[in-house]
Design a binder for these strands. Structure first.
Lengths: 185, 185
DNA sequence: ATTAGTGTACAATATTTTTTGTACGGAATG
DNA sequence: CATTCCGTACAAAAAATATTGTACACTAAT
């Protein structure tokens, strides 16, 4: 009977966990993560010790190859950290369990990538557009159209300057002031 | 010759625009938008007047059916607004050209959805977990495992309370204080 | 009312993305 | 130094997603 009850508890805890894991996966889907990555993060979130690829493979019931791929994407978005030490030759991975840090890491990275892509392309476009506007051969109509585009890009530039400041503040933890993160450092 | 020069200008402007549009699409890819939606938003961003489905179809060289689908996803994420009035029976859509507002709309919506999904699932899980912990039949080991999960969920709850405040502040435009948005209202 | 024409649902198709299996380079072990 | 075994690259297969075509409901004009 004690055995039976033990199983009940384990199963019940498994069900409760799975609901949360599904919610996490659904949530991560929103930001472009694959469903598998989301599930994997959910599993690692509840696991209190670092995991190896083989463990993930078993828990996710998927190929090791795919786990390698999934965990890499999580490491890249800094939702998971690769540990320095190994366990019997196997590399160890641990989820970032502090949601505040996960938020900070994830959005800092994504927004910074956006800023880089957009500012680079705007920086290239602005002189080209200016050149076009200054060209004496083009018609007034063409010049006006080009000018409209120029204003749009200038607006974009202003926006990305703001976004850079926003990201910097996020990096510094400004927005977490009121709520203290479990890990204060 | 003036004709020829005019074509040059139009084509050059088209090339410059296309680079920016590609960058926008790449950027929106990061947040889970489809590539087509990203391209479509880019086109609409540069277009200064509202567009109809047929115009989109031509500009994107895609089926009207698909444009209907793509524009709906943009309207849902509030990157594009459906106008009240029609033009010769056709519905009109206009891009949100203010990047500050687009940011505000987009993230307010996505983060709020995340908050709703997660808080609902955490709210369901907490009493179940508490029930399990209070169960007199389970072993100490099981109880401790359930307790660990409980702490994780409580941490999640704290995080989502913070995130809700963050979203509220974003809605109120707190983070735009220093930079004034083109449309101040 | 009748007609014309728009937007969308839905099934079929095309394309992209994810997943797997396998093979191999390279690091840890003896 | 040889051997074992881990992690990943890569091609093939499977699954998911995006796109199209068609049909139809519904709105707007006649």
């Amino acid at each position: 009977m004690s055995q039976k009850e033990g199983n009940y508890a384990t199963e019940q805890r498994g069900r409760i966990r799975q609901n949360i894991i599904d919610a996490i996966a659904e949530t991560m889907d929103l930001y472009g993560a694959t469903h598998s990555s989301g599930q994997l993060y959910g599993i690692m979130f509840f696991e209190d010790r670092p995991m190896t690829l083989d463990e993930m493979k078993i828990r996710m019931n998927m190929s090791k190859s795919n786990m390698s791929y999934a965990v890499r994407s999580l490491v890249e978005s800094q939702m998971v950290k690769k540990l320095e030490e190994k366990q019997e030759r196997k590399e160890l991975y641990a989820a970032e369990v502090d949601f505040f840090l996960a938020f900070q890491n994830f959005f800092t990275l994504k927004l910074q990538r956006e800023i880089n892509v957009m500012t680079e392309s705007i920086s290239k476009a602005l002189p080209e557009l200016t050149e076009l506007i200054l060209d004496q051969h083009i018609s007034d109509q063409e010049r006006n159209l080009a000018l409209q585009d120029l204003y749009k890009l200038r607006h974009g530039q202003t926006y990305y300057e703001w976004l850079q400041q926003f990201v910097n503040a996020l990096k510094r933890g400004e927005y977490f002031k009121d709520f203290s993160s479990p890990i204060d450092c």
